[in-house]
Amino acid sequence: MSENLHWVGYKTIVRKEITRILRIWGQTIVPPAITMTLYFIIFGELIGRRIGEMGGFTYMQYIVPGLIIMSVITNSYGNMVSSFFGAKFGKHIEELLISPLPNWVILAGYVTGALTRGLMVGGVVMAVSLLFTPIEVQHPLVMLTVLLLTAIVFSLAGLINAIFAQKFDDIAIIPTFVLAPLTYLGGVFYSIALLPAFWQKVSVVNPILYMVNGFRYGMLGVSDVSLVATYGVIIIAGAVLFTGCMILLHKGTGLRT
């Protein structure tokens, strides 16, 4: 019974989340595709041509992995925080809270939903990028695992934001003031080798640097950081955030009074 409960419950949450993503596709899928197309045109085509090569690739090719992983980060986080906070705000999270589902199933369901949106948008951005430049994937397994793990990490981070959020303004603070600066400074548009020594040292404390470069290694075969460091940072961040999420769900913080 409990295996059935967990599996059916998990599938139900995932189905519900994917239905939601597709129902509001104009808000979930289209805007990142448009934004990234603009990035490709402006930075890749217009400015990129003047910049020349970076890491042995055209500038357009160099920024493709960064823009894909940036979309995945933003959308995994955004999906989790908006969906979970929306459910909390509308009180329909109570449908799950009064059910027999354990917290880890609820968490797994929501993370899978957020991950799915991240991957859907990542796929769309990749398809758009192919209109501008050919890409030959060097290490598909690395590319896929970094993508999946990064999406999981930011889904978990989004849940913590949603749990503590009291109003809709609260779900915009982290993406605007933390996530966006860290992503832009995480090597999406440049190699940190271009930075002065001091800023290179500052950059290595930014976890997103490892995700961007790990993914870039998977696609292009070049990276500013080692693969071990990439996986290490992602796994540690994931473990810490997962533990945090489980503790908060167990205590019922922001959900049960």
Binding site: H6, W7, K11, T12, R15, H92, E95
Partner: peptide, 30 residues
Amino acid sequence: GLVPQELNFNQFEKPMEIVVNQAGYYGIPR
């Protein structure tokens, strides 16, 4: 089974979805 005082379902979903999803949270096959 709980019928709460305040409306607590997703008003953008359809009744069929709401009821079927709730069953899923109790492990009832689709």
